[in-house]
Amino acid sequence: MRPPRDRRPPVALEFRAAAAGRRTVYVVHPGALAAQVHRGLADALPEGDGLTVLDLGALDEYAQAALNGGRADTTVPALAGRLLAAMEPVRVPYTLAGWSFGGVLALAMTRAMPAERRPERLVLLDSIAPTEEYKQPDEALEPDLLLGWFAMYLGAKRGKPFGLGPDAIAGRGVDDGLPVVLDAAVAAGALLPGTPLPGLRKLYDTYVDGLLRNNRLTAPYRPDPAPLPLVLVQAERSLVPDDPTLGWTPLAPHGLTRYGCPGDHYTMLSRPDSLGVIAPLLHAA
């Protein structure tokens, strides 16, 4: 019998080293998509700038929770401490950014670090604010909403984005809605023909457990306002597309600057037109 082996990836993944005196962008990545999705961003940054991804998925206490029913035995501040440790030695000058739930972690990091170590601004990539008004109980995450997000995620993950008709899954529930997603994914080439429904169900359940984990980590977290200006980039098809601030205003006493980019919550990380919006903002921050 071959022995198990430790293939755990490092938390800090350097995609591109900064040239002497040039800026390093640190992006907090909360999983769902592989950290390699940020390869395109590294290439889109100006020559000489570096990119390091801080991958929450490399932290066992976080990653395992998506496989064990969505309950993590940790907290946002504790995870932020792990990420700050992984950043050492910090390469300056630097920009800190966070995608999705990674934005919540990035905010916690700025609260935990000494003032003289803080970056000039914090860049939030389609991240929902951890404020009381924007926290949702688990039961508020209804199947219609989750199936739509899951289809968006699956299309991005497989490099074959696909849409669902406006009423394709409305009111169907998971059991009846998931076959609709399966058919659309196969038609778009995102899944192989013959992909079994129980297999897709496992993928869906794991995806939802990852969302629940982040939801439950956010619920008890009571952040103080950000100690620096915030920059928010919202995808055209954001998880909450009709909300222009994603709840960040009360946490931004030093200012909130908003930008929009093409794509959805997931494809915004890889589409060249979206990276064309994001990369200059990270460089300027």
């Binding site: 079994p196 496992k202 993928l203």
Partner: peptide, 15 residues
């Protein structure tokens, strides 16, 4: 096998 395929396979196996 990417993680998507691995999870789909795991679900099929459990079934």
């Amino acid at each position: 096998l990417d993680s998507t395929e691995a999870l789909i396979l795991a679900g099929e196996l459990e079934n």
